[in-house]
Design a protein around this nucleic acid. Structure first.
Lengths: 167, 167
DNA sequence: TTGGAATGTCAACAAAGCTGACGTATTATG
DNA sequence: CATAATACGTCAGCTTTGTTGACATTCCAA
C-alpha cells in the first residue's frame, strides 16, 4: 500500500493497520478453506461441523469425559448432548460410565467412528499438508507462533493440554 | 503419535501427521480468539458475526455491489439480504441505485456504520497486533504464506482482488 | 445423610445458513 | 422491438448449531 509510507523506514512495517487488515482477511478466507473439505464430506451424511469437532477431539483424547469435551469445544452441554446422542445412536461413539466416578461418561470412538474420523481428518490434513509444503518449514513455524499468540489464555490452556497428551 | 519416528531424521518433520494435527488444532483455537472480541461487542447489540463481515467488506470496498459482496462472503442472497436489510434500516449502510447500471445497488457505510466498523476492527486489530508483535515479523510472513496456501483457488482470487484495491 | 457435582433431558428460542418460487426493474441480445 | 438474461428483493419453510431455563437422576464426599 502506498500508505505504508506512514511507517516506512522503521522496523514495524508489519504492524501497520494495512498489514493487520490483510492478516484478518487472510484468516477469514483461509478458515473457509480449512473447513471446506470436511464440510463437503459431512454434507452427504446427516452430520455437520459440530459432529466433526466432537469426533476429532474424542479421537484425540480417548476416554475423555463429557465435561472435558464441553470445555474444549466451548459450547453448552445441551448443544453437545444433541451431537453426542446422534453419534452414539449411530454407533460412532461409545459412552461408558466411569469406573472411579460413575457420574462421568468416558467417550471413545467405535470402529465406525474411527473410520469417519480418518476420512475427515485425511481430507483436512491433505490440504494442510499442501499448504505446509508450499510455504516451507520456516513459514510453518511462524504460522504456528502467530496462531498461538492469537488464542485466549483459556484456549491456549486447552491447546497446550492437548499438546501434552501425545506431543 | 509416537510414530513421528517415521519421519524423524529427514527434513520433512514439519509434514508429519502430528505436526499437521497440531496445525489443525491451532487453527481451531486461534479462530475462536480471532472472533471473540468482535463477538463480545456484537452480543450487546442485535447483531452477529454475519453483520460484522458485511460491514467489514463494505468498509473495505465502498460502493461494492450486492452481487460482489455475495461472492466474497460466499452466502446466498437471501441470507445476505436479511443482514443488509437490518443494517440499512438501522442507518449503518446506505444502498444506492447504480448510475451506469440501475439494476445494481452500491453499498456504502454511513457515519454510524463507519463508527461501528472502527469499533469492531479496532478490537480485532488489537489482538492481531499483539499476536504479530509477540511472534515477530518473520513469523508474520510465514503465517500469511501458510494461510494463503490454505485457501481455495476461488477464495484466493477474492482475497487477491481485495489486496489489489489498496495494497 | 445431605449438599453439590456430573450428567441427561425437555422445551423454547435465536442466528445464520439453505432451497425454491416469484416479482420487478433494467439491460443485453437476437 | 421482442425476448432473454441479470441484479435485486422478498416470502415461506427448513436445517444446523448455538443459547437459557428448569428439572430429574445418580453418586461422591464431607
Amino acid at each position: 500500500m502506498e500508505g505504508s509510507g506512514r511507517e516506512s523506514g522503521n522496523a514495524l512495517l508489519f504492524l501497520t493497520d494495512e498489514q493487520l487488515r490483510k492478516g484478518i482477511e487472510a484468516m477469514f478466507f483461509a478458515y473457509r478453506g480449512f473447513t471446506a473439505d470436511p464440510d463437503r464430506i459431512l454434507a452427504d451424511m446427516a452430520y455437520g461441523r459440530a459432529h466433526h469437532r466432537a469426533v476429532h477431539f474424542i479421537h484425540r483424547s480417548p476416554g475423555t469425559t463429557v465435561n472435558n469435551l464441553l470445555a474444549i469445544l466451548g459450547v453448552t452441554k445441551q448443544s453437545l448432548n444433541r451431537v453426542l446422542r446422534a453419534l452414539v445412536e449411530d454407533g460412532l461413539v461409545r459412552s461408558e460410565v466411569g469406573k472411579r466416578d460413575k457420574r462421568e461418561r468416558h467417550l471413545h470412538l467405535t470402529e465406525a467412528g474411527e473410520a469417519l474420523e480418518r476420512q475427515l481428518s485425511d481430507a483436512q490434513r491433505d490440504r494442510m499438508r499442501a499448504a505446509y509444503r508450499a510455504a516451507g518449514p520456516e513459514a510453518v513455524t511462524g504460522f504456528r507462533q502467530v496462531l498461538e499468540a492469537m488464542m485466549d489464555d483459556e484456549m491456549r490452556k486447552r491447546y497446550d493440554a492437548l499438546k501434552d497428551l501425545k506431543g
